[in-house]
Design a protein around this nucleic acid. Sequence first.
DNA 1: CCGGTTTACGGCAAACGTAAGGATG
DNA 2: CATCCTTACGTTTGCCGTAAACCGG
Lengths: 310, 310
Amino acid sequence: MNLTLRQLRAFVAVAECSRFALAAEQLHLTPSALSMLIKDLESELGVKLLDRHTRMVRVTEAGREFLGSARRVLQDLDIAVLNSRERAAYKHGKVAVASASVLAVTLLVPFMREFQAAYPGVRVEVRDTAEENIKDALLAEEADIGIGTYEEAQSEITETELFRDTLVALIPEQHPLARKRSVSWSELAQWPFIALSPGSPIRRDLDAHLAAQGIRLNVAYEASFPSTVFALVSNAMGIAVLPANSRQLMNMPGIAYRPLGKPKLMRRVCAFHLKHRSLSPAAELFHRLLVEYVEAHRSRLTVPVDPASG
Amino acid sequence: MNLTLRQLRAFVAVAECSRFALAAEQLHLTPSALSMLIKDLESELGVKLLDRHTRMVRVTEAGREFLGSARRVLQDLDIAVLNSRERAAYKHGKVAVASASVLAVTLLVPFMREFQAAYPGVRVEVRDTAEENIKDALLAEEADIGIGTYEEAQSEITETELFRDTLVALIPEQHPLARKRSVSWSELAQWPFIALSPGSPIRRDLDAHLAAQGIRLNVAYEASFPSTVFALVSNAMGIAVLPANSRQLMNMPGIAYRPLGKPKLMRRVCAFHLKHRSLSPAAELFHRLLVEYVEAHRSRLTVPVDPASG
DNA sequence: CCGGTTTACGGCAAACGTAAGGATG
DNA sequence: CATCCTTACGTTTGCCGTAAACCGG
């Protein structure tokens, strides 16, 4: 079982040309080399494939049968190779992205718009989820790339920081704190607080930041999604702290945004992927372009808090 | 476009083993050679097919897609090779034989019985036809092998003599000639004669043989098939000359068989095939075994004429 | 450190091209 | 005799194996 694709290609070429010399030219070979290829193929198969005579070359019965298979094999292979190369050229492919829900709106979708325009063949699947589920989605290989808040390094996952985002206070407009231009960390603890669920990295960062200052929040409600937090604040159920970035999510009435005092707490937005699983060409491209996109739009993404607005 | 089947086999093996070292062993290669094969394949395709790490090898997304194609290609090829080899081993194949009608009965069918018992996989197609149509069937490539009477060599066709057969006279039992132990050529011309059609090689041989002696037949009837000649003689419509062999065809009543005088006329039974078209393995085998069969059964085929019988 | 893959390099076999030979129309 | 395929032979290419490096757990 030592037959080669060269032999197959040689045979198909000769069968199509009905001439060794002509086929040899097409294959960029000498007739002698071609003759060898056919001879070897025939001896591999044990059957004569071609009747050669001075004035004609004809495919035998056994040759006709084999010719069909050879053609199909070569064609299937060509298609497979072409597919792989198109994949490499981003003509098709798939990227599955698991993104924190707010970032899906503020970062991912605007980026995807550009990405899809440039690479319409690549299918992008977005899964918007709570922050705490992103790494699970990666580990379960349901997503190629995750987008969320930095968590302490895990050996399985590589993170790439995209940008940093200031945390701001969300205060109901009638709330006493709304009258201040900025809110200190200690003031937060004095009022009923609407927190993200404890699993959220943002919540963890906030808790750690406050704990370092000996402050403990007075948590009235916990929600998984920032949108719910907005609704709660909007209805004066308490105050909250969210990344400034999330203001782009929705325009809820009755919420005042105030900067938080020192020490500043920043939220690090990262892209994640599995360390041991190489990104597909499309995913690799997506990741690279996302980083470039963030660099180009850093100013918009790291929105300064203007206390006058909202 | 320089990828090889070795690369494909290597990739499939590694994908199945999830280990280079193990796959290398299966392929009778060193891990180093295998590594090269995979590397070259990947660079041909432009995509990474495998994620290699110290403790595991995993197929990438692009690799999974290509793996399917690679498997199918290799399998199709294996099947095609197997088919060809089975053909070479006479496990299957086809032989189309065009035979003169009498020889189909007296020679071909008895031989086929032995042949089919030995090679049940080979499909034998018999076309029984008038002698004069055998070469046409070959030239039209409707038959691989022809069996009939020798005709002067044609450049396109190769003939192999199988056996020689004496011509005998067929005389109605009440006919005056039936009283003689043998019939001379000149006596033939004196009675109404039932001849084969002028296209038949037997007729041509007979005419030439007689012409050389200055004898011309008194042709009363012409028939394409010996069976019709038998019927005409049996009904006392005339006398005839046929190969002795054809007596095995049918046992018509009222016919006396008589040897013909000197110079002896023999009919040469040949196998024909196209010179420029090689026989398929099955046809080649059929031809060879047919020659051996004839040698083994020469005595039966060249039936001596016993004037006492019939 | 150990298991496993990759890189570097030398040797060898397989494949190619050149040139002569053979067959055929 | 001209053409086309095949054979013979010398050369080169490329592939494999050995050994060392490298990487990750």
